[in-house]
Structures are given as C-alpha cells and as structure tokens.
Nucleic acid binder design. Structure first.
Lengths: 334, 334
DNA sequence: GTGAAAGCGCTAACAA
DNA sequence: TTGTTAGCGCTTTCAC
C-alpha cells in the first residue's frame, strides 16, 4: 500500500551515520545534538519517509500521551451532542499539549462501560475522563494505574477529581423564574434519578418551591424513561393535574412534551409554560421557541482536560471538584 | 492508585511454574495446553490481577486489533449525529469480531484531518474508515500500511473500498414525489459541492426535473454555507422567485428554512412544501412534521466495518463499492 | 557531543 | 505437552 514499510530508527541511524540514541534524541529534543548532526538525521528521516512507531515508544517510555474519554456518546441523538461538545472541549486543550484523545462509548450501560474500561486499561492510556453510567458502581477496582477525572456526573463516594455542572443552582433559578411569572403549579419531568445530575436538578426544583412557600405536589412530579414517546405520554398524565408550567430536565423528553402540546393545540406559554434542559438548534424552531438551560459543555471538557493534565503533572495534588455554571436562556415558551 | 502495577506475563509464569510461552498460549489459545496447566495459569492471573499489555502485544505481533474512524464528528450538532450513528454501526460489528474502535475527529477540515491521519498512522491501527473532508486531496500519500475504507463520500480517483448512500436515486425520488403532487417550481438548497454527496443529490434533482420536462431554473438553486442562519437567509432569497416547494439537502439548513417559514407564518405545505435530508427526532415536532430522507447511517457503519474486516482478511480481494438505499419518509410538510 | 547496549512485555520460531 | 530465546522499535543509562 505504501512504501513506509518498516523504517525504524535503526534505518535512519544507519542512513545518517549516527547511533540510534542520537536519532531518538533528535526526535525528542532530549539532549544536545550538534546542528550538523541534526541536519543529517532530519535528512535521513525525510529520505526514508520515517514515521515514529508510537507503540514501541509507549512500551518503552510507559507513556502514551493518550487520554481516553468514556461517555454515552453513541446512546442517543441528544446525549451524544452534549458529550460531543464535551469531547471537542477536551480535544482542544489536549491538542495544545500534544496529547491525543480517544473516544470511547459506554452506551450508558454498566456492562458496556466495564468492557471499555478493561479494554482501555490494557491499551496504555495516560488518563481517563469519564461520565459514569451508574452511581452505584465501584469503578476503582476496574481502573488501571492512571488518573481518572469524572465529568458531568460522579459515582457515590468517589475519591477522584471531578468537573460538574451546577445543576441545582440553575434549576432553582429556572423554577424561580417561573414562580416570578406567577406560576404556582409547576410540574417536574425527568429521567430516573440514577444519575447525580438528575437528582441535583430535582433538588433545585424542590428548593425553589419550598423557599417560595409553595407546597410540593407529588402528582406534578413524573419520572420516566428518557424517550420522546415517554415525554409525550407523561405530559398527557401531568395535564390531568392542571399544571401551568412544566420543567423538563431532559432534551429528548422535551421533544415529547412539545409534540404533545402541539398536537393537542395547547397554547404555549398561554395555557402552559415550558422550560427544558439543553440548548440545541432545534429548540429555536419550535413554536414557540423554547426557554432552555444551556450547559457549558465545551467548557466542561476544557476544564476536565486541564484538571487531567495537572493531575498527570502532580499525582499528589489535592483532589479538585469543579462546578461550572449553566445559563438560563429565556425565550417565548415561558 | 491501583495494585496492578507491573504484573507481566513473566510474573504470571513464575507464579504458575510455567514458561512465559505457555502463559501466552493460554491467553491466546494459540496452541494446546493441558487443562491442569491452564487452570494454574488462570489461577495465577487472577491471584496477581494480571492484565495484558496490549501495547507490547501490538509491538510484537504487528497487529493492534484497532480500527480508526475518522470523520467530522465534532463539527456540528447535526453532522455529528449522522456520523455517530455510523460509528455505532461500525462498533457493533467490530465488537463481535474482537476489534476495537477509535473515534477521531476531522473537523471537516483538511488540515485537522491530515494531523489525525499522521497521528493514527503512528499509533499502529489495523485499518482506517474515513469520511474524507475533501474530494481534491491525495490521501494515499498520508496513509500508512493499513487498509482504508471510505464512507459516505470519496475523494476523486481513489482506489479504495467505499460504502456510500445512493444519494442520487433517493433525491430523484423525492423530487419526483413533489412533481407528482403538481409542483413545477421546486427550489434546491444545499451546501457547497465540495463533497460528492451534495453533488449526487444535485444530480438527482436535475434528473428528476429534466425527465419530467421541467426546465431547470437557476434562480431556484442556492448553494451556501451550511448553517441555520444561512438556511434562513437563502429561503428569503428563494421566495422572491416563487417556488412552490423546497428540497433542502442539509439538516441544519432545513432548520433555517423552517424557522423562516414559521416566523413569516408561511403555510407549509399549502404555500410551500418542504423536503429535507436526514431523519432526526426534531423533524417530527416541527409544524408540520417534516418530510425527510432517512439515510441508513447505522447500516452504513455496519457495511463499512464488514468490508474492512474482509479487506484485512484478504488484501488482494477486488475493490468494493457499496451503495446503500436511503428512504423517503413522507410526512405533512410535502 | 555521541555511542553501545539493556530492556519495556509480549509472540512465535525452534527445540525438547 | 512445554520451555528457551530472539527480537518487535523505541528510550535511556552509562560510558567515552
């Protein structure tokens, strides 16, 4: 296929009349080499079309300069965009620091996730950034000897660095905004509380109500599988309890909500106001455009990568937990 | 962090009182080992919590069992979902065959792409599946000594396997459907023809018109940057030329179209019909729900992975070009 | 300023 | 049925 068959550092050394050590040092800048020798080596590398074999390099140096990102990126069209933005953020700082990113999918399922961790652990990675699929799992027993940074969510009782969104604060803010507009019966629609994120959003909702002296009505709280059709059905159920607003903590469910309201010609926000999580392009073209909470996905990735690199530098630095602020974007649906 | 410091095959061998060769063969099933010995070896591996070092394994065996997928996965929230579905398809067959998938982002930019190819080529991959960002580039000079399968699009004059969507046929079908409903002035809105996909869709459009004896009106054809706002603006321009239908070959532009029509309260399909590319969940919740062309993204990935594995098996098999059929989903917008 | 050589953890040819 | 050992391509210590 290509003439770059098996050109090794040895061939380059021979061609340039130097030792392999010198070639290696030229490549890595790890010790002084005279200009003249450098020139010869570069010449030889060009002539032979030499490409470093980073597998051999990793084996010897015990560093791969590869960071893995494990998240439910293939799971659904919504979660995948959030995590892809996170990935883009991670990538941007890794690239600057000469690290590489490997994306790995967890399917949001524990079993898949463990498989991937096993695989990654044997591939020699220098670090793992992950959005755990479960709070309950004891991940530590699966990890290899590399730093781990949790992103977006964390498992219970973990001892690692983490970079999270301040879900509670922004959820509270959103609900308070609704309360400020006179809403008293505010429904809460979300996926199961198996993730710390969902739980935190719930807490924000409860706190806003409580502080405003509004009684929490369990009829207005619905938890269910995160699908469009489930959002649709639960909206139907919720409407029987006469809410004047719905706070949906998931984007896909929000589509279900909107499709229900549209189909039944229920006026938004006249009859019912809607606030949803996540800013996607489609939230601007619903009728009316949606009020949403925009999560700093890219920045989450940037921060996580920064934390990772710091951790690699200094294994003993104190543990960090970062909370990034999300932004409420008020549009016509509320 | 973890007690699995440096357990090698050697430690296992010592612990089990066998040779490293035996351990290796137990792991890989590459030659007969007595049950008794196998048991001892497994025992030792468990005791020591041994994990294979696949870097060493790759170095020695010159196979990594890793396939890379290079595509514009981080570029935009739309393209990314298409390619993530492709990735899921690839993943599903690789997993069954004990291969691993590494996702790599091209940003839809040649420079990024070359960077990634360079990096991948030094990482010892067994194959590369890619959606080239450009038709013009001579990719072959960048590739290493592994098979390459093009997916979704191909560069000019390539000599590789490819797995593509039958864009022309389905586009033609869509336009014919519009013609069948009496439309004569059908607008065509797309991104630049730098990708084979866009070009093929254009050909389908032209062919449908021509065969129906409808003159092609260049005023009804608009090419532009693939963004929501550009879709919005070009719709405004197009409407000055009185089309009764719009065929948009890109999903993000379609959002722009819909947002314009909605904002100006233009009836769909009464005043203007809309057909767009790609089936996303949001296309079901626009008013009215969109008629779209659904690409077999997952199947594309499956096929590409299959072709790749065949190619790895047999480097000299004849070159394959596969065309998968896309599906027109007629909903209320047309 | 540069070279020789050991060895990372594994696989596989050869030997027994 | 199993063991011995060379060597994959690189980095890095030690020596000069």
């Amino acid at each position: 296929m290509n003439e770059n068959k098996n050109i090794s550092i040895k061939d380059v050394a021979k061609h340039a009349n130097v030792s392999t050590a010198t070639v290696s040092h030229v490549i890595n800048g790890t010790r002084f080499v005279s200009e003249e020798t450098k020139r010869k080596v570069h010449q030889a590398m060009d002539d032979l079309n030499y490409r470093i074999n980073s597998v051999a390099r990793s084996l010897r140096s015990r560093k791969s300069h590869v960071i893995a990102f494990l998240a439910p990126i293939l799971a659904s069209e919504t979660s995948n965009f959030f995590f892809m933005s996170v990935a883009a953020g991670i990538q941007s700082v890794l690239k600057q620091n000469n690290y590489h990113l490997v994306l790995s999918d967890s399917h949001e399922e524990l079993e898949f996730e463990e498989d991937e961790i096993r695989m990654l652990s044997s591939q020699m990675i220098d670090g793992l950034i992950m959005a755990p699929a479960s709070r309950e799992c004891d991940y530590d027993q699966h990890f290899g000897d590399y730093p781990v940074v949790y992103i977006d969510r964390v498992p219970n009782n973990h001892q690692r660095d983490s970079v999270l969104v301040d879900n509670k604060t922004v959820s509270k803010e959103a609900v308070q905004m609704l309360i400020g507009k006179g809403h008293k019966r505010i429904a809460f629609l979300s996926g199961p509380h198996t993730l710390t994120t969902t739980e935190e959003r719930y807490e924000g909702y409860i706190e806003a109500l409580t502080e405003a002296g509004i009684a929490v009505d369990s009829q207005l709280i619905r938890i269910g599988e995160v699908t469009l059709s489930n959002g649709y059905q639960l909206t139907d159920v919720l409407l029987q309890h006469d809410p004047s607003a719905i706070f949906v903590t998931d984007n896909v469910m929000a589509m279900g909500v909107m499709s229900y309201l549209q189909e039944k010609s229920i006026r938004v926000p006249g009859r019912i106001a809607v606030v949803a999580f996540d800013e996607f392009q489609w939230t601007r073209i619903t009728s009316p455009p949606l009020t949403v909470i925009e999560q700093p996905a890219f920045e989450l990735g940037v921060k996580a990568a920064e934390v990772m690199l710091e951790r690699i530098e200094n294994a003993n630095a104190p543990r960090q937990e970062h909370r990034l602020t999300a932004k409420l974007i008020v549009r016509q649906s509320s």
